[in-house]
């Protein structure tokens, strides 16, 4: 057997647990050790990435859902930290009648991504006075993400993180966007506020003002742009482009 054939057999064994493949690896007790290690590593990766979703579902229900995901999804990245991608979609299928479960997972995954996102020098309140706002271009910090939910999952997640009593799950009257980012080294999230919807790519502040003035009139538009800018600077949500 060539090395490639052996490795194909071993991967097949790890993914399927087919006893015939274990025999191809020489049989005995050894193949089961590797099968157990493989599955335990993937289970641990999901448990680590989705601690609050696990708390919401309970250990046994979470483990059953994670096992279904592991069965259906091969790990394709060199890092275990990537294995949690797509788990929310598995949960959406498994808990179609409880959409807050997938929403919780989407938020947790965004928080995981924010935790290790690239560092950046954010715009801070103290910087604002020295900037030429006619020319200034802003962009969200690399950790910034917009997650759309259809339930009160953000409230549930906040309560779970604070180890408080989470509210009963409920559907929202319309989908809600939640902003996820990292303040310093700590991931944060909150519902989108007026003006935040523009913070999804590079934009000139003067253009933001013009668009808001066009929508809302001069006084209200300028006020909203200023409020959004102050909020972004206070929360380290944006950076000044070169």
């Amino acid at each position: 057997m060539s090395l490639a054939q052996l490795q194909q057999t071993m991967i097949g064994w790890l993914r399927s647990g087919d006893p015939a493949l274990a025999q191809g690896l020489g049989g005995g007790a050894g193949p089961a050790v590797y099968l157990n290690n493989h599955r335990a590593a993937l289970m641990a990766a999901l448990e680590n990435a989705y601690a609050q979703t696990r708390a919401w579902l309970g250990d046994a229900t979470f483990a059953a859902a994670a096992a279904r995901h592991i069965e259906a999804h091969e790990p394709v990245s060199w890092t275990l930290d990537a294995y949690g991608a797509g788990f929310a979609e598995t949960l959406a299928e498994l808990f179609a009648d409880d959409p807050e479960v997938a929403d919780l997972a989407r938020l947790e995954w965004a928080l995981e991504q924010a935790f290790v996102a690239a560092d950046a020098a954010p715009l801070r309140l103290a910087d604002l006075a020295a900037i030429d706002w006619d020319q200034a271009r802003l962009a969200p910090v690399p950790s910034c993400r917009h997650v759309t939910v259809t339930t009160n999952a953000a409230e549930i997640l906040a309560a779970l993180i604070d180890e408080g009593e989470p509210p009963t799950a409920r559907a929202l009257t319309e989908p809600q966007a939640v902003l996820v980012w990292r303040l310093g080294y700590v991931p944060r999230f909150r519902p989108l506020q007026a003006g935040d919807e523009f913070l999804q790519g590079e934009l000139r502040f003067a253009e933001l003002c013009a668009r808001l003035v066009n929508q809302m009139g001069e006084e209200e538009g300028i006020a909203l742009a200023g409020a959004a800018l102050a909020r972004w600077a206070g929360e380290e949500l944006c950076l000044l482009c070169d």
Binding site: S2, L3, A4, L6, Q7, Q8, M10, I11, L14, R15, Y34, N37, H38, A41, L42, A45, E74, P75, V76, S77, W78, L80, Y83
Partner: peptide
């Protein structure tokens, strides 16, 4: 060891056969 083949990662340190072919690779 090897941990990946055909685009699938095992996330475990899997054993090699100690052959000349494996040594060359």
């Amino acid at each position: 060891c090897w941990t990946r083949f055909g685009g699938v990662n095992s996330h475990d340190l899997l054993p090699l056969p100690y052959t000349e072919e494996a040594l060359a690779i």
